[in-house]
Design a protein around this nucleic acid. Structure first.
Lengths: 269, 269
DNA sequence: TAAGAGATTTCATTATTTGAAACGCGATTT
DNA sequence: AAATCGCGTTTCAAATAATGAAATCTCTTA
């Protein structure tokens, strides 16, 4: 529709965790865009606060360098997205509660097309703790939280999503489409997902599905930490409170069926 | 530079906390943009994930409604901005430490042109607690944290900023430019700012300046909560640890002079 | 001091954006 | 059931903005 805008906004995707600072030349090369075109678009993105040029000290004077980084405007807009998500208000108290019972990081994830995205977190207070970030993206096939989202999609949609290449993030990242399907079936049957070193080496997470009023799994909630505190042998100890919380949140989202796992714990609370 | 893009991105500013959902017609009217133009821009913003159309249930079928809201892409990009801010990594452990000593919300703010913006927070664990949001904006003249940023700017820059109208947020929001200047002088002299019901009725915050390697106050750190736990009479009890933390963070940012308040506490720690 | 690297500007050409008007379509009214 | 209304969407010729090769500027480096 508006080619110019779409082209310009694609440039923001270059700014990742791994490389958060770019020069005009790099951008022009990488985006295969003539330099003057890239130049003008970058300027506009700076004008609206989506990018900013880093500051540089030059014999006492402070000047703008030729390096662009993401601007604070995006932080602001990101915050507004977050605050508009009703689920966060609903889920946050329960996430806090889980965290205080278990003292591990608790995370809430939803799906954005072919990726999971972390929309809320509560941190553990342990001295060594896992740090995830709101807004972080992860593929649907790796990690307990995201795989939970994947597992409850219709089969044909899963098939479609799994046509994308499977990247290897850590030692236990599933390697093939078959691996992923096996894990999906396991998740569906057990009602939770467990992951160990799938997205990040040495981290573990346990996730359960949250259903919306249409009975779709729109969110998943997980506990994440390290193998010492979350060993697979003890998994039930963590899954049961997760089911409990997931079932309450599901109900608050308008899910009317009994939560299908954990012996319909909803009634207890 | 790129008129089209700038015009299109301005539309995102309509999506605020107060009104986070807009129809084409509303946008066209509000932005004074012909409907087909707005239409095409909105479509493009949806294409890149900056906006999304809310879903609607229509006799069993799920369709896209004509309401636009901010998209998850912005959450993602916002997270990336945050992670690129070196200060957060530096400050976060000390913020945690403050929080565990005092058990009130701790916040880190920086300036984005004429506004303050919250870039990190640690929450209190009290049952009733203040909730601020990363990415939240606040004017520089109201609230302890932002006023601290304002107070250490050069006078002419302050004068410039105070040419903007002063809005009234709560019962103790400063009303006039003179009010603000009086508070600025107080802040400069005392080395901290105290606010009570300036931005939000019934909340209190206490803030101290963080200096960068150029000796500018680039950030401020604050404790925020309610009057019962943060009474003005006890302010020193909170200011001293804030100075201590602010001085350590300043040093880590390359500030080489002794921190000018709290009897140069840096040496103690 | 010259050469090099990268950012900016120029300007004629080309492609995109523009918006009034028409159309489509479901909801509401007659 | 037909007519009307309210909005979203499409059309299309005119107007505008984007484009990019080449020139220029501005530091940095040899």
């Amino acid at each position: 529709m508006s080619k110019t805008m779409e082209k310009g906004l694609q440039l923001l995707d270059l700014f990742t965790e791994e490389k958060h600072s770019w020069t005009l030349d790099e951008i022009s090369t990488h985006a295969e865009m003539p330099k003057p075109t890239a130049y003008r678009m970058l300027r506009s993105l700076v004008n609206v606060g989506f990018l900013q040029r880093t500051l540089l000290e030059k014999n006492g004077k402070i000047i703008e360098s030729d390096n662009y980084v993401l601007g604070l405007k995006l932080l602001q807009l990101g915050g507004r997205v977050a605050s508009a998500l009703e689920i966060r208000e609903i889920a946050f108290p329960y996430m806090k509660q889980l965290q205080s019972e278990i003292n591990e990081a608790v995370q809430l994830v939803t799906r954005d097309n072919e990726n999971g995205i972390y929309i809320e977190k509560v941190e553990s207070t342990r001295p060594v703790r896992l740090y995830t970030r709101i807004g972080r993206q992860a593929p649907l096939y790796a990690g307990a939280c995201t795989r939970t989202l994947l597992s409850y999609l219709p089969d044909d949609e899963i098939t479609e999503i799994l046509k994308n290449p499977i990247k290897n993030y850590a030692s236990h990242t599933p390697k093939t489409v078959e691996d992923v399907w096996a894990l999906i079936h396991k998740t569906r049957q057990e009602g939770f997902a467990y992951s160990h070193s799938e997205l990040e080496e040495g981290t573990v997470s346990i996730a359960t599905p949250i259903f919306n009023h249409r009975g779709e799994v729109q969110y998943s909630i997980s506990i994440a930490g390290f193998p010492v505190s979350l060993p697979i042998e003890n998994v039930k100890k963590f899954v049961v409170p997760l089911w409990k919380v997931a079932s309450i949140i599901s109900k608050k989202l308008g899910y009317n069926d009994p939560y299908p796992y954990g012996d319909n714990i909803t009634k207890i609370s």
